[in-house]
Amino acid sequence: MQHRWTMKRLINIQPSPLARIILAALPFIITLLLYLWISDMRLSSNPNDKLMPAFSSFATAISELAFTPSKRTGEYLFWIDTVSSLQRLLLGVSISALIGLIVGLLNGAIPLLRANLSPYITVLSLIPPMAILPILFIIFGLEELSKVILIVIGITPFIIRDLQGKTLELPSEQLIKAQTLGASTWQILLRVILPQMVPRLIEAIRLSLGPAWLFLISAEAIAAQSGLGYRIFLVRRYLSMDVILPYVVWITLLAFILDWLLRKLSQRVFPWFHDPR
């Protein structure tokens, strides 16, 4: 009877569904309250403090950017920024995904190609992309192209290496089995490896989205006419935390939504990949 009263080991205690939600929400709520509290303190001692604006200032700043046409151009800057950034990001990530899938898959599947390209790609992946951003600006100009290419250069080597590794991890039994069923190299690539690599590609993309945002915002900070990163760095001069902080939250939200969409898409389309776990 004694053990009924002893506590289970910590590793064996699972939160109930409700507790799970509360536990997950708690850090967000605490951060928010902490911000409100400190901001309030600072503002009451100095009403002109710019570092931690009140929520009302955020609302004013964003409604000005998002719902009032700009005085200079008549555009809604917040949405222009969002569209420009998303366009660059999605274009860069899509190109990287395509190259990464093809090269990674071929590298993983064909030893001759791997011997040929793998060391080269390893070296390329070690080049810090930000260090060659000036070169990109020189070659491709300050327009859209160099920003997209920075993303591509930044994340493609990772995707290639990840997919090459995942291809090599496929049980050799599968490739042997396909050959005993009469498959050619091409057919094995098409029917055995490719379909199994697509959900893994989605995983790799989800992991690369963080770096992709990093490269995008860096490039926008240095040279752009619009974009979320551009705006943040532009208003930095005026210490406009009332714009910067909502933009950061917005970027985080966009990143979260993209990740969530990719995860749901993969679960829906590739049940065999997600269920076994």
């Binding site: 039994e173 050959q179 199994q196």
Partner: peptide
């Protein structure tokens, strides 16, 4: 000296395609 359609195989595991 490579697997072919004249010789079939069943392994202990991983013998069918999961996808």
């Amino acid at each position: 000296q490579e697997p072919g359609p004249d010789r079939g195989i069943v392994f202990q595991r991983y013998s069918v395609f999961p996808h």
